[in-house]
Design a protein around this nucleic acid. Structure first.
Lengths: 190, 190
DNA sequence: CAGGTTTGTGCAACAAGTTGCACAACCACG
DNA sequence: CGTGGTTGTGCAACTTGTTGCACAAACCTG
């Protein structure tokens, strides 16, 4: 439902080929919407068939040749419509919560190490985001576009902050649990 | 990848029929892993075929008859293995961030109203979680199982807190943007 | 006991995302 | 000039989740 609109946005920011798009989805856009090149090519084909984008008229190459796409007015209109339309927030489908719930039943053995690993990963991601913020969003530059992009980055920073704090708390709970004596790793059998 | 394990967890907590599971997925488990009854029935069939669960031997009914499932030792082992295995955290795939990024290109018209709606929804969800916390996690009850479940609930509370704060911030930015004069709703055309 | 509603189980088709691979052109290097 | 790596495009099969519907039994209610 959303990948075509992510592509339209990226193409409006700058007309690109499939591979260029893939690279941008590995960087900035990919922080909140990842996609493989296979997905992107498939979607580019659909969007072209629907008349929302077209290849830049300069070139008309054969298979295996680079193609540059740009957004047509119908594509811009569709993106504007989608952006303004109501979308319900979806619950956070996180495997980690599931695993904690499972651990309450089958024991916490091995889980702690992975929590530590996650903590480290989230700390790194947080540092990366903060670096981007320092580099790309100095206090003076202040166009509406900058503000909106900054807003998205802030969400990323705040979410990573949440994860580092929550994982730290979780690990301290784990430490207490295993410090309370035997019988805590494997709860009573059903 | 995770639904079967969610079902195993739920069945270990209490052997149930498909519909009972569906109801529990609409409540507590569904806060972080939702599933429809169709998904659940399909998965129950697979889990039974793999020998991880079985119908309670008491009854052996025909189609349209209630069936109660319980977890077999192999199922418990698989759940323990999965819980302890390493899983990489996935990026937050949120449509809202995509829409903000799109709004930076096609304008913010209409988006503000939906942000307000989201804020209201997240406030309500937060209130619901806090109610559950007050009701189900008094400071005295303190078994390892309780602690782990409380940890998951805390994550839900903190995430909803994040959303309400971030959305409030986003709306204040929007107010500033539209207060700065004309030409801000539709950025310069390409 | 006839007829409608609720409860419970389940299939089929579809949509979205993932994985694996194929293949063309271009470029560098001996 | 040929051959091997890199760049770029794309198909096919699979997995997971969603939507729509079918159908049986149980339970009311006149």
């Amino acid at each position: 439902m959303s990948l075509p609109h992510a592509i339209l946005t990226a193409l409006l920011e700058k007309p690109s080929s499939g591979l260029e798009l893939t690279r941008r989805f590995d960087k900035s856009i990919g922080y909140f919407w990842s996609a493989t090149h296979q997905q992107i090519y498939r979607e580019l084909g659909r969007l072209e068939a629907e008349g929302l984008i077209r290849t830049l008229p300069a070139e008309q190459p054969a298979r295996g040749q680079r193609k540059n796409y740009e957004v047509l007015p119908a594509g811009r209109a569709e993106l504007a419509r989608w952006t303004a339309a109501a979308h319900d927030p979806k619950p956070h489908r996180d495997v980690l919560f599931l695993r904690l719930r499972a651990a309450a039943v089958v024991g916490t053995g091995g889980l702690e190490a992975d929590l530590r690993r996650h903590l480290e990963l989230h700390r790194r991601q947080l540092a990366k985001y903060q670096e981007i913020e320092d580099r790309d969003f100095p206090p003076d530059r202040d166009s509406p576009q900058d503000r909106l992009r900054h807003l998205v980055l802030r969400a990323g920073i705040d979410l990573e902050t949440f994860w580092t704090q929550w994982l730290t708390h979780a690990l301290s709970e784990f430490a207490e649990l295993s410090g309370e004596g035997a019988g805590n790793r494997e709860p009573a059998d059903g």
